[in-house]
Design a protein around this nucleic acid. Structure first.
Ligand SMILES: [Zn+2]
Ligand SMILES: [Zn+2]
Ligand SMILES: [Zn+2]
Ligand SMILES: [Zn+2]
Lengths: 174, 174
DNA sequence: ACAATTTTGTTATGATATAACAAGTAAAAC
DNA sequence: GTTTTACTTGTTATATCATAACAAAATTGT
């Protein structure tokens, strides 16, 4: 299985354009998940574990029904509640994020530290990169507070053209 | 018809908590819509105009099918494409915003100046307040550019507790 | 009037998500 | 180690959100 791909899930990290072995990411994510669940007395059951793995194996955010199909292939129950329950669990545990503007789900590489998911979504290749920006987070909290609003959750989804696709376009027109 | 409500659509404005006559907002929004459409050679047809009006008359973001039902009551065609076409038109003209995390649509009080819709969404009362924050916009553009990403659109939806609901809670517990 | 363009009507279907209740399974209490 | 309890999964049905495809009607430009 090759994983020399354009998958990106950096948090202001620098390896965002490197060809890395995605299997390592998956392994790390799964280990983190095991640890976190154990710590919090949560049960990472077979279907939940496999769902998380399948989400990670995808290089783009995965739709609920895409995930359901994959689970069904492997003998899991194929009714929608199966997948939505798994997703709810994983979301609650902070192991995945939902990309609202895509109705799709993405593994979080930093599940161990509580944070909001901020995303850069490419219109062309549909890759999604998670990024962290404490400045923006602080500014949003302050801004909301200024209006008497107590912030709980943030949906920050930016779409546009990623570096790779921009380069590709320039190359094509040149 | 009373409009002494908690409707809010400030853009960093100060009347966000005032009891204002919402009819004025609607009238202004409709006039702006007429003007903008005329300027751009767009046709604000009956169903589009009425859809916009109904969205404004609602004090919260309105779902597509809620809007469809209202339109149907008034004799408009009651099939989904009717409402989605109207919504597409209004979105394209910048007259409304879609709140992705709610799958609902909201009138924009500043359709005349191009901008991104940033929202504060109350978990309790489900009121939505649009706000403008040039600082954040600039920071996001810069941040994205720093990663080689060319920003096109932004989905910024913040949820939490609005000032009113927070006050209500304090009152209840006191 | 005619042709071209845009808008609307109509039917069907796709895509996303939840409600409700029964059955099974694992943890905790005894 | 059996009972009780809480949690998890199975199952059926339905709710909610959105688009495809093509026909008919209305508007616009000539
Ligand atoms: Zn994350
Ligand atoms: Zn791209
Ligand atoms: Zn706006
Ligand atoms: Zn509120």
């Amino acid at each position: 299985m090759k994983h020399e791909d354009s998958h990106q899930h950096s948090q202001q990290d620098s390896h965002q354009h490197s060809h890395h072995n995605h299997n390592d990411c998956i392994d790390t994510a799964l280990e983190t998940a095991e640890t976190l669940c154990a710590e919090q007395g949560q049960r990472l059951t077979k279907v939940r574990r496999r769902a998380l793995e399948l989400i990670w194996e995808s290089h783009r955010p995965l739709g609920a029904y895409q995930l359901l199909a994959k689970l069904a292939e492997e003998g899991f129950n194929s009714a929608p509640p199966t997948v939505y329950r798994a997703l709810d669990f994983l979301l609650g545990a902070g192991l995945i994020h939902k990309v609202e503007s895509m109705n799709a789900y993405l593994g979080c590489a930093h599940a161990d530290k509580a944070h909001k998911g901020y995303f850069l979504i490419c219109d062309e290749c549909h890759n999604v990169m998670e990024f962290d920006y404490q400045d923006i987070h602080a500014a949003l909290i302050e801004k909301a507070a200024h209006q008497g609003f107590e912030l709980r959750a943030e949906t920050i989804e930016l779409t546009g053209l990623c570096a790779k696709c921009k380069a590709k376009k320039v190359g094509a027109s040149a």
